[in-house]
Amino acid sequence: MSRLSKRGVSVVQSPIRAMSTACRKAGGINLAQGVCDTETPSCIIQGAEDALRSGKNSYTNHRGIAELRHAIAEKERREKGLTLDPHKEIVVSNGATGAMYATLSALISPGDEVIVFEPSYGYHTATLQALEAEVRHVQLPLYEDTMPWEELENLVSERTKALIINTPANPAGKVFSSDDFMRIAAIIAPYETVLISDEIYEYFLYEEVPHCSPCMIPALQDRTVVIGGFSKTFSVTGWRVGYLIGPADIASAAGHLNDLYYVCPPAPLQHGICRGLTELTPSFYTALRQNHQEKRDILFTALEKAGLCPTLPKGAYYILADISRIHGSTSLDRAMEFLRRTGVAGVPGSAFYHDSTGDHLCRFCFSKDREIIVEAAQRIEQAFA
């Protein structure tokens, strides 16, 4: 008998971390891990420093400091027209990943069915596996902005406990529209299905594409949990401050589990994030989008010139490319050979699918400094000239 639990055996190291390790050893350019290289706004750093120096270093409320919850509620009112109770409907957690784990722990029992759209962020699937959920997959097309409605309709049933979406999506950049959500609302209406919307990339949108959240759709408000965070927007991936927004009963249960798992995010860092939410102006977010759209276009052009059929994302900051012409028996082999050949690391496409669908793909992140993206683009073009 194994000394490890089924959970301990089933969850393995993320391919993202594996490729980052291989990249460091090779001295390459790491476009595998989704780490922002943009500068953290000074007001956020100052807010955390002020909190540290004023002695705000103890445990916080298990839902997060009141100031931050109120700031999140105000953000949602201003941007989405929502009226939220910061004491009952918002929980601050240890990153969006922590918020997702607390939410799913509150909702999912072993054997419950959960639907995930593919290509999907691997941590979502790994979390569901750890909770012993039955995962069902619906595949999204890569090169056309359509939805497989018939497939989704056939899959949703009274056994469907939850449906997870990511908008804008990692890795393909899909952005769900209000029409998409209204159609989803109609499909899940006969059941008790909860919609979980990971919106960590909400400010990374291109060509004036608007961000829409299912909580903005009246028919979905009482059955939606929004997962959000600040790691990407404020370039503080190591701070681990995220949040969930949801109906009071779900938020309460998730809050107690959040307390059990994490106690609370670091108190001074919550104050730093709060400073950013209250002091940064719309121009910050506009510049963020423009900066990333420029880098997206640089990398997309290079991959296209190399004949690698890249996707053009409407949101988030990743591009999927077809590396089937690279020699290798597996997706990981091809990604490793791509790293050896170009000095640029990506994530094997198999990390985003439950089957072999993504074996010919590789994901590249363009959230690095512009100079790094330009260098990576040059290396790719030269390698395939």
Rank of each mutant, 00 (worst) to 15 (best):
F204E: 03
G228Y: 03
G246Q: 08
L220V: 06
A253R: 08
T237F: 05
L244K: 00
E207C: 12
M216H: 08
S231A: 14
P247N: 08
G229D: 04
R240V: 06
H211Y: 13
T237N: 04
I217L: 15
G228Q: 00
A248G: 08
A253N: 04
F234D: 01
P210G: 14
T233R: 01
P218I: 11
K232Y: 10
I245T: 12
G238R: 15
T233M: 03
P247T: 10
P210V: 04
G242K: 02
L205N: 02
T224S: 14
H256M: 12
E207A: 10
C215R: 03
V226T: 09
G229Y: 01
P210M: 06
S235D: 08
E207G: 07
R240P: 03
E208D: 13
V209Q: 05
S231Q: 11
L205F: 12
T237A: 13
P218S: 08
Y203L: 09
R223Q: 12
Q221V: 14
M216P: 13
Y201P: 01
V225I: 10
S231F: 04
G238Q: 14
V241G: 06
I227L: 03
T224V: 08
I245F: 05
D249N: 14
A248L: 15
A219S: 03
W239S: 06
D222Y: 09
S252W: 07
T237S: 12
V225F: 04
Y203H: 15
V225T: 01
S213M: 09
V236K: 03
Y201R: 03
I245L: 13
V226Q: 00
S252R: 13
P247K: 09
D222E: 08
G242H: 07
W239P: 00
G242D: 10
S235V: 15
E208Q: 10
C215W: 06
Q221T: 14
Y203R: 04
K232S: 10
Q221A: 05
S252L: 10
S235E: 10
V241T: 09
Y243I: 06
G246Y: 05
Y243K: 07
I245K: 02
R240A: 09
V225R: 00
T237R: 10
A253K: 13
C215Y: 02
Y206V: 09
E208G: 15
